[in-house]
Structure formats: C-alpha cells, structure tokens
Design a protein around this nucleic acid. Structure first.
Lengths: 132, 132
DNA sequence: GACGTACTACGACGCTTATCGTATAAGCCC
DNA sequence: GGGCTTATACGATAAGCGTCGTAGTACGTC
C-alpha cells in the first residue's frame, strides 16, 4: 500500500472531533479521571501548548499517551506534531462556545478542592456555637 | 442483633458523604452518565424532592436504583425514606459551597446541548467561500 | 395477619477502561 | 547514515461499570 506519497512534514495529522460533535457527557467523563484532570489543569495554567513529556504524571508513557488520546477524542484538547514533539492545547474557544463557563468552573472547582484538601487542618468540629 | 430498637419511621437512614468528603472527580463521573445526568436535570428542573418512580428512564428498576446510589455516594443527591417512597433531592447548597457555579454550568451546558442536537438542521457545509 | 407498593441486595454478564511493557515509527542532530 | 528523543501501536491484564432478573425487605392499608 504505502499510500503516504510524499507528505512532507505535516504528514502526521491527528483526528479531532468537530466542535459540533463534542458531547458534554464525554467531556465530563474525560474530566472525571484524576490524571486527565491534572493534564487539563496544567494546560490551562500554562495557557500555551505543551508537549506530552512536560507533564509530570504518576503513570507510564503508554498510559499518558492513552489519556491524551481520550482528551483529544472528547474534544478537550487539540494535538499537532511539531518535529518529534506533539503539542497539546486546550480547545478553550470551542468549549466556551459550546458550554459557556463549564471549563472555568471545573478548573476553579479543582483548584478549590486542591486547596481545601492540602491546607485542611484536622479542625475537629469547631464547636464555637458560631454555627456554620 | 436487631439493633433497630424502636426507631419509629426514620428507621432506614441512608449514608451520605459529608460535604467535606465530596470529590470533584466523583461528581464529574456521576454526571458523565447520560441516565444520571438526566436524573440530575429532572431534579434541578423540579426544584423539589422526587421519588425514584417519578423518573421516566430507559432502564430497569434495578439499574435505576444503582444510578441513584451512585448519585448519592458522589454527594450529588440526598435521599431519605418517606414511608415506602424514597425522596431524592439535589444537594445544591453543599455543591455550591464546594464548587461554586459548577452545577449550574453543567445544567446549562446540558440544556444547550439538547437544544443544539434536537433543533440542528442538517446544514450541509455552507461552502460560501467565507472560509471557516 | 394478608396483600400490594416501593425500593434494595445479590449474582451474573458483557463491555469499557486504566494500566503496563515491548516493539516500532517519525523526526532531529552529529 | 547512526544514534538519540519523542511519541504510538499493540497485546495483555485486571478492575470497574452499566445492565438485567429474581428474590427479598420495609412500609402502608385493609
């Protein structure tokens, strides 16, 4: 077969769902995994493209690839090759148009939870009648 | 054992996670299932408690029970018995305190997607050279 | 006490998924 | 070209999950 005639350097193009094909359930499912949520948060924090290898994840290389694929197929991130590296970016515009405010509230919730869980003193119950 | 001494009508109490135990990942996972998202939307729309049997779901009774359990254990809904019926309610206050705006943006996104998918004309491609 | 209603528990089944290791392909640099 | 880096593909595995049916429990009513 060898159908890849010349295809200079843009040869490796990855399939992305069109904006209208993105489904809320899949986006939520993609975000529900701790590793993937971490990836999305890192991408949002950097605001720019990042290569896969920049992420410090507690899983193997293969698993990382798998998670990036899930993120891409759900429509959360876009990926394109740049030399040997693969650049990843959040599809903020598409997501904002489809689900206004969703990504931001998830990101804010994640940040809030991290703060709450890390700095949470073993505060017993605080019985100071001030009521909650 | 028979530890249920007298316990008049509040005998059957269900375990709910405390607010501080609610995890974003579990909430997102709970919302990622179409059936459960539908339940949550119905609860939000009604604004009040609803019995399990009020929901018109495309799954069996057992499966419905399963989904309600997932919702309760994730912290999304609270359940308490009232006679033979089990009343379900969204834990809006707890969720809003933990993840401000999250639930609303998910609900809005779901509504938006439903509208988009139902009223979507099979608009071909619109090749009007306007470039995309 | 007997019956009906509402929901649960349990076991089963099949599909999906998160994980890994190894082998492989594409591109860069010398 | 040779070797290094980066990421993929593939197969395997174990766990999780959505689904169901059946049997059972709790409650209200007669």
């Amino acid at each position: 077969m060898t159908p890849r005639a010349q295809t200079p350097n843009t040869a490796r193009e990855l399939e992305h769902p069109a904006a209208r094909e993105i489904r809320l359930e899949e986006v939520l499912h993609a975000l529900a995994d701790p590793v993937r949520l971490r990836i999305v948060r890192a991408l949002a924090a950097s605001g720019e493209e990042m290569t896969c290898s920049l992420f410090d994840l507690p899983v193997s290389k293969s698993t990382t690839t798998h998670h990036f694929r899930v993120l891409r197929e759900s429509g959360l991130v876009s990926q394109n090759y740049r030399g040997t590296a693969k650049m990843n970016a959040l599809r903020r515009d598409d997501l904002e148009r489809l689900f206004p405010g969703l990504l931001d509230s998830v990101l804010a919730s994640a940040a809030r939870q991290e703060e709450r869980l890390s700095s949470a003193p073993p505060r017993p119950v605080r019985t100071s009648s001030a009521s909650g």
